[in-house]
Write a protein that binds this DNA or RNA. Structure first.
Lengths: 195, 195
DNA sequence: GTCTATAGAAAGATAGAC
DNA sequence: GTCTATCTTTCTATAGAC
């Protein structure tokens, strides 16, 4: 028996989230209407409310799932043995993951202010959990005498900010490919934490 | 003869821009209504249109004036003699200026997408003009053999991104004061461009 | 599960009185 | 220069048919 027409819950949900992610990232959360999201998916605005209680919950879900996926993907990989190797691994992973998920990364920095206090807190906690991975690497290298950091917390923030910056200007069609960019950034990161 | 009541063009214009800057930065351009801006200033919504042709022009003006002021302020200062001293001067200026104008800095990165193509181009050109100041310093140090850069353009972007990151987490009431933060960041920048 | 239709609120911008 | 009033559009969210 064929599925009844108009019944597509398994695919409409993900399509709504994909459309919302793209539109929110490109135009901003407040500038995107539920009608625009529905039009992208090919359903009516009212149908969206079968998948999300309201617009903010849709944003929160996108940000939370993004952060959870980033942490899980990082943790699922084998960790190199030395602090230096682990730092290089982090730098290359971060650049690659961010470029692969540029819209979600952009959203997760830009649209936090559109979350209610509770939703904001969950996303911030996830971000800190990710940053703690880098801090742990730096701390281990510092203890081993490999790294020389003026300040652990500031070094963490400085490295994250530097690596995040790649997403602002990188284009696949540009002068350098991803591996080339990652190699150059790793060189600067390595020197910044050395003696 | 006393000024007629309700005539305040010299002060209302700046007050509108100040209110728009604050509201746009905190809630986002699209999320702020002309009525909210007017309420902040203490006038009716219609009165705003004596000072701006529309909402986007108000945003464009804020971003353009911000970038022009940043460049002019930087250029008005005496330039140190050596590339190293000029780079340290740039790092400290950039952190200080960004913290002094946090809302405008945030706006000028986040709300570019709400500008029309022409307005976007003028702001981008100003941003590049500012970045060129840093590139020139790095290039001079490279030529003198003081700096060792894997890539001039990427080093420029990496340093700007790293310094911009301070605005995300810095609080006046925090563990470190501005000079302390600037000193630590300068240490990391210096090492990143060294041999 | 999706549709049409709509309630109710709020938006950007303008007209004309003062 | 500012106000009140309003035009027109658009928004989020819901109700009820199918």
């Amino acid at each position: 028996m064929a599925r009844r027409m108009g019944s597509h819950s398994e695919i409409t949900g993900p399509r709504i989230r994909a459309a919302a992610l793209r539109l929110f990232a490109r135009r901003g959360f407040a500038a995107v209407s539920m009608r625009q999201i529905a039009a992208e998916v090919g359903v009516q605005a009212g149908a969206l409310y079968l998948y999300t209680p309201d617009k903010e919950a849709l944003l929160h879900d996108l940000l939370r799932v993004h952060m959870e996926d980033m942490i899980a993907t990082f943790d699922a990989r084998p960790a190199p043995a030395t602090p230096v190797a682990r730092l290089e691994d982090f730098a290359r992973f971060h650049i690659g993951y961010n470029l692969d998920h540029a819209e979600a990364v952009f959203l997760s920095y830009m649209e936090l202010r559109n979350l209610s206090a509770g939703n904001f807190a969950t996303v911030e906690a996830l971000r800190h959990a990710y940053e703690d991975r880098l801090s742990a690497i730096l701390s281990a290298g510092q203890a081993a005498g490999t790294f020389h950091l003026p300040d652990l917390r500031l070094a963490t923030m400085a490295i994250i900010a530097m690596l995040n910056g790649v997403n602002i200007w990188f284009r696949e069609s540009g002068r350098l490919d991803r591996a080339g960019v990652a190699g150059i950034y790793w060189d600067m990161v390595r020197k910044a934490v050395s003696a």
